[in-house]
């Protein structure tokens, strides 16, 4: 191979690399312009936490406060909180999504309206009350809390799924049937893939609801970050209260953000 050719090849390669870089840049720019809002929330979360730690850092903490805010204590409660929200969310999805699909079948269309109406009205049913009632029924503790959380989030997620499946373009379903797909094939190859964004949105709703309600699980002895708030109120310690509130808010925002990112990816994939 002569040097001349090598040079040309090099130049071409360089050009190709440059071209690739440029393409990469425009791709990134496009990504940025589409999803810049996803950066706003983490920024808010970070700001919130920084303020919190700066504030607490300037305070002289007494021994009680130090004990409550010890990393081990907070970390344990945080983990409980995540477990509570995670377990109940999985349960909600396992129950609500298949049920929602079943309700959207031709045979069950008549039940749909009532379910939607009740689901809408049930937004006024306080999850806190549901959670406490479970304690009377099943005793205090983690399992009871998970059951209560699941029940409280069930109707909203079911409602979301049914509405989402309703919105799947009817002409697409007709087209699928027209091409000779069975109703089963239509469900699995057209309706469900098209409804995936809806299901993911349902996941997000369930997560947000459950993270919120899980903070109240401490009232039935199931732990979680609500415990921090309860202790702060009992001990009348404002510093603990602020840290507790800040951490809970940050966690909820973070989880919602993560769910939002997953949602974007899924929606982008399913076109």
């Amino acid at each position: 191979m002569s040097t001349a050719t090598t040079e040309t090849v090099d130049a071409q390669a360089e050009a190709a690399v440059e071209e690739g870089e440029k393409r990469e840049q425009t791709r990134l720019a496009a990504l940025w312009s589409q999803h810049y809002d996803l950066v706003i929330l983490p920024a808010i979360i970070v700001l919130l936490l920084v303020f919190l730690f700066l504030y607490v850092g300037t305070r002289q903490l007494d021994t009680i406060e130090q004990r409550v805010l010890a990393p081990a204590n907070v970390g344990g409660l945080l983990w409980q909180q995540i477990l509570l929200a995670g377990a109940s969310t999985v349960l909600v999805l396992l129950i609500a999504v298949p049920l929602g699909i079943a309700l959207s079948r031709r045979g069950a269309r008549r039940v749909q309206g009532p379910v939607l109406a009740v689901g809408g009205f049930a937004q006024a049913l306080p999850p806190f009350g549901v959670l406490l009632l479970m304690a009377f029924w099943l005793d205090f503790g983690f399992t009871t809390a998970v059951v209560g959380l699941t029940i409280a989030a069930l109707l909203p997620v079911l409602r979301n799924t049914v509405v989402g499946l309703q919105q799947v373009d009817q002409s697409l379903i007709e087209a699928a049937r027209g091409m000779g797909m069975t109703s089963r094939q239509t469900l699995f190859r057209v309706e469900i893939p098209l409804a995936v964004p809806v299901i993911v949105a349902g996941l997000r709703v369930a997560l947000v609801l459950n993270v919120g309600t899980a903070t109240l699980a401490s009232y039935i002895g199931a732990g979680g970050l609500g415990e921090l708030v309860q202790q702060a109120l009992r001990l009348n310690r404002i510093n603990v209260l602020l840290v507790a509130g800040g951490i809970i808010a940050a966690l909820a925002l973070l989880i919602d953000w993560l769910a939002g990112v997953v949602e974007r990816i899924v929606v982008a994939r399913s076109g």
Binding site: V208, V211, G212, T213, V229, L241, G246, I248, A249, D256
Partner: peptide, 20 residues
Amino acid sequence: VFTAALLTVPSLALFALFLP
């Protein structure tokens, strides 16, 4: 975006933050 984020914050946390 901001008010939507506020809606995801658990009520117990907001009550705790406003109490002081």
